[in-house]
Simulated scan of single mutants.
Amino acid sequence: MFRFVKPRSFATGLPCIMTALGLAGVATSASAAAQSEWKCPENFEPKAGLNVDFPSDGVDRAFVVVPPTDASGAAPVWVPMVGTVEATNWNLYRLPNGHNAALADAGYMVIAPVRECADQDPDLAAGRCNGPGHDGWNWNPWHEGRATTAQGDRWKTDAGPDVRFLEAMVRCVGTKWKLDRKRLYVGGISSGGTMTNRALLFDSSFWGGGMPISGEWYTTRDDGSSMSFQQAREFVADDPDKIFQGRVGPYPLPKKLDPMIVITVWGGKNDKWDCGPPIGLCSDYRPTTQAASNYFSAQSKIVHVACSADHGHMWPQVNTDAFNLWALETMASHPKGSNPSSFKLTKPPQGYRCKLGRFTDHY
């Protein structure tokens, strides 16, 4: 079982040592600062299971809490997100839809947000979540990328409600359970992978890292102007080493991010999304994962791991539980602020090809 052991002897003697050194006030300030990390909206108390009516950006939101089986010490956190056509509870409790709740047995606090379009229903799959976005957003399940219209310009600099909701949700859960502030990880598939990219780009000071699985980058020209789907594919294919701007994050992209670890996952040649007639193929995750890996791996304080497989456009299908645990152990082995040069990549489960740095198998 994967678990962190909190050292107790030093913590027990710390107040006496601090008092003897005349630093009790410093200890009090540090304690207050630690407590301020965790806070909830007024009169809201988190609980295990489904939490509803969580106010965020003027909307009532929902999330599911699966506490670690072994609750001793501060738990690392895993925030998994679904894509367009799967329900939150599927991703938590079913194979092959993710089975992420099982990570609680390995010592992780699992907190699964429910998409706003699902109206707090963790069992809603596609339905009204399947379709184009509104209010300047490109796609409906998550507020994860700005639209190509003038309405979308606002989201060049505004992180949006979902980025804020994800952070607020974790901070609230931390008021009831001990969470490891240096080991907060977010991830997701498809639109959830795109949302992961956005959260990491806009909120790198909060997250310890993340795992975007088949996420969009919504590649743009260097001036931030949009291109057609086919133009964007060709733009990346023609220069696969380039750092690409994208509608998934701020424009321009930050020159540097806070220290993190990022695992970008590509599902292979069949990792594509068909929007159906009359549009047809509308996303190809070969160029989008390439663009993401180029940017994250160019950041000096970020460890980037590029993972390829052959499962297509879905949550990793081969050895799912083993891959999930390997990915979380990999991220948790590099707590926020760690020196990138000290990171050691372990071998992934059978069915996955992972390496440090950017993807070099796409083109």
Rank of each mutant, 00 (worst) to 15 (best):
L103P: 02
L103D: 01
L103Q: 06
A104K: 07
A106K: 11
Y108L: 09
Y108K: 04
V110E: 12
I111P: 02
I111C: 09
I111H: 12
R115V: 11
R115D: 02
E116C: 00
E116Y: 07
E116M: 05
E116A: 09
A118H: 14
D119I: 09
D121V: 11
D121G: 01
D121L: 06
D121Y: 09
D121N: 15
D121K: 08
P122W: 11
L124H: 10
A125H: 05
A126R: 13
G127M: 05
R128T: 15
R128D: 15
R128Y: 05
C129K: 02
N130I: 00
G131Q: 08
G131M: 08
G133E: 05
G133D: 04
G133A: 03
H134F: 13
H134K: 11
D135F: 03
D135C: 02
G136V: 06
G136Q: 07
G136Y: 09
N138S: 09
N138K: 10
N140C: 03
N140R: 15
P141H: 10
W142S: 00
H143L: 02
E144Y: 09
R146E: 01
A147D: 14
T148S: 10
T148M: 03
T149M: 04
T149Y: 10
T149C: 02
A150P: 14
A150Q: 15
A150N: 14
Q151G: 10
G152N: 08
D153S: 12
D153P: 11
D153F: 11
R154V: 12
W155G: 03
W155A: 01
T157F: 14
T157C: 08
D158I: 05
D158G: 04
D158V: 13
D158L: 02
A159C: 05
G160C: 07
G160F: 06
P161C: 10
V163W: 06
F165W: 06
F165C: 03
L166K: 08
L166Q: 12
E167K: 12
A168Q: 15
A168S: 15
M169V: 04
V170H: 09
R171K: 15
R171G: 13
C172I: 01
C172V: 08
C172E: 09
V173D: 03
G174V: 00
G174Q: 03
G174D: 05
G174T: 01
T175H: 07
W177M: 03
W177N: 06
W177A: 05
L179Y: 10
D180C: 00
D180P: 10
D180V: 00
D180G: 01
K182D: 15
K182N: 15
K182Y: 13
K182M: 07
K182R: 14
L184P: 06
Y185I: 00
G188D: 09
I189F: 08
S190W: 02
S190G: 06
S190Q: 04
S191P: 01
S191G: 13
G192A: 11
G192S: 07
G193W: 11
T194G: 11
T194W: 00
T194A: 07
T194F: 04
M195Q: 13
N197E: 10
R198T: 13
R198N: 09
A199Y: 00
A199T: 10
A199C: 00
L200I: 03
L200N: 08
L201R: 01
L201A: 08
F202C: 04
